[in-house]
Computed example of a mutant assay.
Amino acid sequence: MSRPVEASIDLSALRQNLNVVRRAAPESRVWSVVKADAYGHGLKRVWGALRETDGFAMLNLEDAIQLREWGWKGPILLLEGFFHADELELFDKYRLTTSVHSNWQIKAIQDARLNAPLDIYLKVNSGMNRLGFTPDRVSTVWQILRKVPNVGAMTLMSHFADAEKSEGVERPMQRIEQAAEGLECPRSLANSAATLWHPETHYDWVRPGIILYGASPSGQWQDVANSGIKPVMTLSSQIIAVQNLKPGDTVGYGSRYTATQEQRIGIVACGYADGYPRIAPSGTPVMVDSVRTTTVGTVSMDMLAVDLTPCPNAGIGAPVELWGNGIKIDDVAACAGSVGYELMCALAPRVPVVTV
């Protein structure tokens, strides 16, 4: 490796975060959500550190098959189910659990030739209006599926749009209770925020995602700072050049930063082509030589600039943390008007990744 930018994945932090989930929902089993290549951390890198989970939840059939081939024998849930009826042959072969959210999926399951029934998660639209059956239809759909020979165990599944808010699950839970009226059914409802902050939603299975990787579901690190959750991904680089500015000198494309006094800045080998957000403004936090400072100027494709005033001894080769334990990814994302989810998933393929 010649260019110094690097992402490191702390597997012990990942295991710690799973333990936090266990403590938050001690009576529930855990679906560890590993969609989007484990939120940019690399499914192949991290799944072994999550072996103590009860099951894995994801989107891509190909990823589910990979997990089976790597040796995972426990439950695997496809959160959006199958996209084409002919995929049911592979769901059957690899013993995958499918969500069901549309009428055509019911018909496909009825018509499929399977070696054994498939477990299904029936999706309730709790008001988010992405996927799922409206509450008034769920009982009818449940009874239809219950009579289908190709259907095994059934679980009621839903999702929350506002679980990071103190009252964010009240109306969705009313819709879910309406849907479940008269049904004896296990439930899987809680996402990361509900797992942490709404124990009334836990039921049989929780589905944590972002908290496994060490960021806050609210986008505010202070909301999870005392939870025991630890950042898993650290994006780091080095200072590769130093510039001495005079008052009036500008920095970067668009000349969006102007020095008001003499100032040293460092040029860091990291830019938006590495996954750092281009729209992060001057003032976004960064750590240089273990000292907290900020960015200055517009982020370039391959470089960004940082203020070296707080760290006068830092020079070429000084270590830089873009996000990680010292600089929380939520704080960087907030400056960029985004969320930690997006930054994790945007890590570029050209960035070398090491596991710790």
Rank of each mutant, 00 (worst) to 15 (best):
T298Y: 11
Y276F: 15
P281I: 08
S188K: 04
T97Q: 08
K107I: 08
C270H: 03
R45K: 11
E69Q: 14
G252Q: 01
I65V: 14
I144V: 11
S166N: 09
W197D: 03
P208I: 07
V320D: 04
Q220D: 08
W47G: 13
R146Y: 13
K230E: 14
Q143P: 06
R171D: 14
L11W: 12
P285Y: 12
I240L: 01
A49N: 13
E52I: 05
L88G: 00
D92P: 07
I176P: 00
A241R: 02
Y121E: 06
P172A: 09
E69T: 03
V242S: 07
M1R: 02
L88Y: 00
N129I: 00
I106C: 06
G81V: 05
E321G: 10
R175N: 15
L59M: 07
T201N: 01
A314F: 06
D302H: 13
T201D: 11
R130A: 06
E167A: 10
Q66F: 15
E170H: 09
I329W: 13
S126C: 08
L77G: 07
A38V: 10
L189I: 02
T201L: 02
R171A: 14
P186L: 07
V34T: 15
V291P: 00
A64H: 07
M157Q: 10
P186Y: 04
S290F: 06
V100L: 13
L67C: 10
H159G: 04
I9Q: 01
A49R: 08
G275T: 02
C185Q: 04
G317R: 01
A153E: 13
P281E: 03
R278I: 04
H159C: 05
L59Q: 09
V100H: 00
L156E: 04
L156I: 03
M157A: 11
A215K: 03
F133N: 03
S192C: 05
G42S: 15
L183I: 11
A305F: 10
S192Q: 09
R278C: 03
D162F: 13
R51F: 08
G337P: 13
G219C: 11
T134G: 15
W205C: 06
Y257S: 02
S290H: 10
G42H: 12
W31V: 03
M1Q: 06
D10H: 14
L67P: 14
P75K: 09
